[in-house]
Design a protein around this nucleic acid. Structure first.
Lengths: 224, 224
DNA sequence: ACAAATTTGTTCGTATGTATG
DNA sequence: ACATACATACGAACAAATTTG
């Protein structure tokens, strides 16, 4: 698509070249309704097209990728992303940030991750046979450094290849804990509410993009 | 802080140098509890400290910034970011939103909530004496109706009056599950993404009001 | 108010590594 | 094995914003 010479970018203008390129690509993407995972030109191609260094194109693409417009795959190419970045990932990051910011958010520490055979107790709810390999995660939840919860979870190993390692790598929260937290701890933290502009319209649009607003409100509560 | 020579990064290992640096910086930040907007060493400083090119350091910092740990200001420096949006609540809302959109996000079902006496196993990590009343929650995680995880958690009853009832009322997600989900399940569900208008600007403000955007996107995936 | 020094931002060039087909 | 395409890393230079003299 857009095989045209592509008018050159403005050098020396106030706007960084990579921004101009990012914007142009974005515009072109939105214009030419390339559904699904349409593929973008290669970095080299774009570089020559815009007459810039490949790094400059990469910077632009990095921006688009960060905003969830495209997805980059090594060795394959860059593709239009209509599904956006995901939430959990960001969620985790925001959690880390939280942790860093204050020291008193409830945290979750994974003590141990092991792969064991499912026993009778576990096998039932997981709908697997006894003896099936399951990943067992043992963790504690902390609030202000004080242990609040202790939990053990099991996941079917087969269904989640690599889960064990992944769990070891991260320190994630226990939802249950967080949920409780949401009810009680909230008092002295900041809240964020996500409000869909209108749960209805979100449906009609074919565009994969709906943009509800996230309202953040700080709530100071006197102790007690 | 950390004025030491900083053992060199592993070259040629499987991990990109910038990742190692990002991780090291992150670690150092968490370790040295530098509250508020403590300032990081300059890029040049870090570059020489790690014996890498400045670009490599920049890449690492970009990562930290993207994850909300630090904030970079041209001409001034890089600072530890502390104000953050709130995490758990956002998570829940997004979860609800998710639910609303489709019906097949991974869910968490609480099977049973009981108040029991802490046994030796539980008492330890919770830092309570054996026999202390603890709330025991048993739950399973589902994805598309299929049980994926089975877990049991304990909370000190004293610390959380009313927890039992509250747990019975909710149906929450398992963070671990969600974490994994992020890698695999994503493919065929609807995602909700909270995007700060500009991860950078959101930084400057001391105001407790940040208004990221929630992007909801439907993703149709061909079966198979 | 102006100049200089600092510090981050942008762009180019070059080289090499890694994943994909 | 080979070509393609993205990933990483280094080096150099200059621009822009901020702070300091």
């Amino acid at each position: 698509m857009t095989a045209r010479a592509s008018s050159p970018v403005e050098r020396g203008a106030g706007v960084a070249v990579w921004r101009q390129i990012a914007q142009r690509i974005e515009h072109d993407l939105r214009a030419g309704g390339q559904g699904g995972g349409a593929r973008l030109p290669t970095e080299a191609e774009l570089a020559s097209r815009f007459a810039v260094n490949r790094h400059t194109v990469r910077r632009a693409i990095a921006d688009l990728a960060a905003r969830g417009l495209v997805r980059v795959e090594q060795g394959r190419g860059t593709f239009l992303q209509d599904l956006v970045v995901d939430y959990p990932l960001r969620r985790r990051t925001s959690f880390s940030a939280n942790l860093l910011a204050q020291g008193r958010e409830p945290t979750h520490q994974i003590l141990e991750v092991a792969e064991v055979a499912a026993d009778a107790i576990v096998a039932g709810p997981l709908a697997v046979r006894q003896g099936t390999r399951v990943v067992q995660s043992t963790s504690i939840g902390l609030a202000d450094g004080i242990p609040i919860s202790y939990g053990r979870s099991w996941f079917p190993a087969a269904r989640f290849p690599g889960l064990a390692d992944r769990l070891r790598g991260y320190t994630s929260i226990s939802a249950t804990l967080a949920d409780y937290d949401l009810a009680d701890y909230r008092r002295e933290t900041t809240r964020v509410l996500a409000r869909l502009p209108s749960a209805d319209e979100a449906a009609g649009l074919r565009q994969p993009v709906t943009e509800p607003v996230l309202v953040t409100e700080a709530l100071d509560v006197d102790a007690g």
